[in-house]
Amino acid sequence: MNNEDIKTLKNNSFKVWAVFATSIGLVMLGILLVKIGMDGMHRISMQFFTSLPSRRAEEAGIFTAWVGTLWIMGTTALIAIPVGIGAGIYLEEYSKKGWWSSFLEINISNLAGVPSIIYGLLGLEVFVRLLHMGESILAGSFTLALLILPIVIVSTRESIKAVPKTLREASYALGASKWQTVWMQVLPAAAGGVMTGIILALSRAIGETAPLIVVGALTYVPFTPKSVFDSFTVLPIQIFNWVSRPQAEFLVNAAAGIIVLVAITIVMNGSAVLLRNRWQKNVKW
């Protein structure tokens, strides 16, 4: 073999390995989907969605879990979306370059990297105890809202940054004020990206388990919440609870719950991707 042959051989073996590396994650995803389908699909029924948790696996359902998830998501979104967009706007449009803006930037980048369970500890001390919210939906939502805030802020900033300067100039040149320019031109032009970020952030929040366990979400809730001050459970916690039980029948329930959770995640992420592609295609300045 001469040098060139060795080169080609190396190149080809790398390609084989690369295809393997690229696809192994997808293979795992495939196995995962098949596995939960086989384990849990037969358990998906009306009864599963409408039943309360129970000590008998075949009677148990995810009613309180998905209702709790809806409550938590709604409240989290109400808190995180305005605050996140507001902070993104402030950083991109208002704050002047200087130590304060670099400090904010490091700060947000750090928050994005803080393990989610630490947010749980924060929520436990601040929301549950200090602010007397108790182990309520409100406390859980504030905790998750802080957790996803960096995602909303970063995506808001990115999309606002992508809005060309000329658009702002056009608006200012017509006598619009700063806020009018931001509210009527910049934000609408950035809406696609901001929306994408919000969906991704919420999809992250939907799957979060650990911080909610820490702030005291219950594993057994025999009723659905009536207000944000009620205690709650969510889908991933219900799944965790079932997975942790020794009896195999509960694993079936866990698999069925996982099917629901994964479906929600894929739908949310899929729509975020579609939205992003669509938005990138439409925006040609």
Binding site: G25, M28, L32, I36, I206, G207, E208, V243, V273
Partner: peptide
């Protein structure tokens, strides 16, 4: 995008996968 979904699936699901598969 498919890889992104891999990173987006709730970790409780992966826990189940590790334990049972």
């Amino acid at each position: 995008p498919v890889l992104e979904i891999l990173a987006a699936i709730p970790t409780v699901v992966y826990g189940y996968f590790a334990l049972t598969v």
